[in-house]
Design a protein around this nucleic acid. Structure first.
Length: 677
RNA sequence: GGCGAGGUAGCUCAGCUGGUUAGAGCGCAUGAUUCAUAAUCAUGAGGUCGGCGGUUCAAGCCCGCCUCUCGCUACCA
């Protein structure tokens, strides 16, 4: 590999509309921090930057819902998350935020550079505008009736009832959420980054020059590149964000995806006046730690921006992780199905390293993984405590018991002694090899295996049995056990910084660095050890039960919420109702529409004719079970072509909270063609 | 449906460019041990490597088809 003089590590900027949960940690912050600590331990020139991502529409909506200002929202979560990271021992050199003045300056300059180079294209489009509030409306700020399912409380970007994604202009009876006014379409112009223009460059850079990226990252990029890239708007009509620094762009701000990654650069500027060498020097290795949801931004969009700007380096690697599930279910902030970091830190004081250990050992490096509290307990009790903590304690207790806490001298060494001593360096190298390739789970296991060897060493040499007959031998054994202990305090340091530091205090080891790992003489003869204390404590079943109960309660709350029915729609006249021609009909034949997941092509006998209807029911019904099914059909709905098939009418179905569909089924005696009224 | 990633012991995962009886940790069983937070150490049971077919002297690994999970995407009158 190329020789690098310095490292710039970034961890995804957490969005400041909520707290950090375990998924963020396992996927991004714990691996990033381990890597940062490891490199620092090697005395390399590194910076590790992060910060809060504080712009964008979701924050303005949250603020509105809570009756506070967007600044209040981001202030709250910025300080909560900053503090949580610190308590967990995430060693950012700086944790900044995208509302900082430096960031405004950086992002503005960045935009201006691209603007002046003519890298943007300008387009005029029609968007909804609230005449009362005198502002353009983000899609999320518009409600109306969903054209698909008739839900009256659909948002401009998505209907939460039927799950379909919408354009605000699709909504029937649109309404501004700000003033309640009926929005009007108004022309507005925006700047776009023509990603398609950088396609050739990106293809070469990723597909040819970066074959070493992780398969999930590489594959995802390939998929996007093969699909073709589209110009992406870099500005929005919004009052929360960084103003577009162009004349005549009043009321427009930089789109959050554009300003957020620049936050890495701003954070670096804030950190050091020497920031440029970390971003513009070819001998700097830039690494982005992110989750898989962020791959496209960090591998395609941001590099395109950096490339267009011209003076920046590109990431050398983007070791994105997959997702962490919780007790078998996907994490969900809105459903409150998550374990929140700040709550964990409060409920498990002093156990930040346990969390670091468990989430690293079970990190979703190659595929989605599951976090369970039972596994958390098992890893604490059977690995941290039983293997690591126990070995250290045995060694310490024996040394105090036999030699008053002073490091005894080695005498003649057996083959096994040599073997154990040699293993120090081997373990260190194995850990390095794994960390260098972002295999954090494997690296951690290597470290734990050294503690394992320690236990085996004691079990095989049995110093407690031979102390009376052969104290010389016991001196050797404990000296080696102590050297091993000292190595553990160094090799575990990137993973478990708090534990390692407590361990070093216990054995009074100072002035160490990663380079000292592997040494066989870390503790001098007669060096006085402090009193042993336990590194880990057992986690009892009750504690785990309590956590599971807490999750169960969350789930129950959610289910109760889901049972709430939609409020009734506004009144319609009898005439309006009478316009609808709903009839009894029978399905004559059914087949799945090729190349779709949900669509079923139905031939129905309506009593007056036989017609074709396309319906989105294929996920719930088998074609053979549909023949003979009596249904209600809306006959006079305007025909529409779907996947090349003319659909003439709509079958009426009811939908449960979980999305399951049921036919509105007439009695068997009802004949085809009879009116439903 | 398209694209991407995955499907290996009860659980969580390794298996690099195809090469002898497929590995680890946890869990389980048996034995040893008592310095240690009922911790440790040894041994063992347990796998048609998602399914079928193909290439090859040889396939968990390569190719084709199918199937399941996750993500992106299309479709929902």
């Amino acid at each position: 590999m190329k020789e690098y003089k310095r490292y710039t590590l970034t961890a995804a900027l957490p969005y400041a509309n909520g707290p950090i949960h375990f998924g963020h940690l396992a996927g991004v912050y714990i691996p990033a921090d381990i890597f940062a600590r490891y490199l620092r331990g090697k005395s390399l020139d590194i910076i590790f930057v992060c910060g809060s991502d504080e712009h964008g529409v979701p924050i303005t909506i949250k603020a509105k819902n809570e009756g506070v200002s967007p600044q209040d929202v981001v202030d709250k979560y910025h300080s909560l998350n900053k503090e949580s990271f610190e308590r967990l021992g995430i060693s950012f050199d700086i944790y900044s935020r995208t509302t900082s003045p430096v960031h405004y300056e950086t992002a503005t300059e960045f935009f201006k550079t691209l603007y002046n180079k003519g890298e943007f294209i300008e387009k005029t489009t029609e968007q909804y505008y609230d005449p009362e509030a005198e502002q353009f409306l983000a899609d999320r700020y518009i409600t109306g009736t969903c054209p698909r399912c008739g839900n009256e409380n659909a948002y401009g970007d998505q209907c939460e009832n039927c799950g379909s994604s919408l354009n605000a202009t699709d909504l029937i009876n649109p309404q501004s959420m700000i003033s309640g006014a009926v929005p009007v379409l108004k022309e507005t112009n925006h700047w776009f980054l023509p990603l398609d223009k950088y396609e050739a460059f990106l293809k070469k850079w990723i597909l040819e020059d970066n074959k070493h990226w992780k398969p999930n990252v590489y594959g995802q990029c390939k998929s996007w590149l093969d699909g073709g890239l589209q110009p992406r708007a870099v500005s929005r009509d919004l009052d929360w964000g960084i103003p577009v620094p162009v004349k005549g762009a009043e009321g427009k701000v930089l789109y959050v995806w554009f300003d957020a990654p620049i936050g890495y650069i701003s954070a670096t500027r804030e950190l050091t006046p020497d920031w440029e060498k970390y971003w513009k020097s070819e001998d700097t290795r830039l690494i982005h730690f992110i989750g898989k949801d962020n791959i496209v931004f960090h591998c395609i969009v941001f590099p395109a921006m950096l490339n267009a700007e011209g003076s920046y380096i590109l990431p050398e690697n983007v070791p994105a992780n997959e997702f962490l599930n919780l007790e078998g279910d996907k994490l969900s902030t809105s459903r409150n199905w998550a374990v929140w970091l700040h709550e964990y830190l409060d409920e498990f004081p002093g156990k930040q390293d346990v969390l670091r250990y468990v989430l690293c050992a079970n990190a979703p490096e190659t595929k989605d993984n599951d976090f369970t509290w039972k596994d958390f307990q098992a890893r604490n009790n059977n690995e941290l405590l039983a293997i690591f903590g126990n070995f250290v304690n045995r060694t310490m207790v024996l040394t105090h018991k036999y030699f008053g806490g002073k490091v005894p001298a080695q005498a003649e060494l057996s083959d096994f002694d040599h073997e154990v001593l040699e293993q120090f360096e081997k373990s260190k190298q194995a850990i390095e090899k794994s960390l260098d390739t972002f295999r954090f789970r494997e690296a951690l296991k290597e470290a734990m295996d050294l503690a394992r060897l320690g236990n085996k060493y004691l079990a095989d040499t049995e110093p407690w049995k031979i102390f009376k007959t052969d104290p010389e031998r016991v001196r050797t054994i404990l000296n080696i056990s102590l050297q091993l202990t000292a190595n553990l305090s160094i090799l575990f340091d990137p993973f478990l910084p708090d534990t390692s530091s407590r361990l070093r205090k216990m054995i009074d080891l100072k002035n160490f660095s990663w380079a000292d790992g592997g040494r066989k003489d870390l503790l001098e003869v007669n060096h006085l050890l402090n009193q042993p204390e336990l590194l880990f404590e057992r986690i009892e079943d009750e504690v785990i039960e309590a956590q599971l109960q807490k999750l169960k309660n969350n789930k129950l709350d959610n289910e109760n919420k889901a049972l709430v029915s939609e409020p009734s729609k506004s009144a319609v006249s009898f005439d309006d109702f009478g316009k609808m021609d709903i009839r009894v009909a029978t399905i004559l034949s059914a087949e799945k529409v090729a190349k779709t997941k949900k669509l079923m092509k139905l031939l129905v006998d309506t009593g007056i004719d036989k017609r074709t209807v396309v319906s989105g029911i294929a996920e719930f019904f088998e074609p053979e079970n549909l023949v003979g099914q009596k249904v209600c059909i809306l006959l006079n709905l305007e025909p529409r072509e779907i996947k090349g098939i003319q659909s003439q009418g709509m079958i009426l179905l009811s939908e449960n909270a979980d999305g399951k569909l049921f036919f509105v089924e007439p009695r068997p005696e009802a004949v085809n063609g009879s009116m439903v009224k």
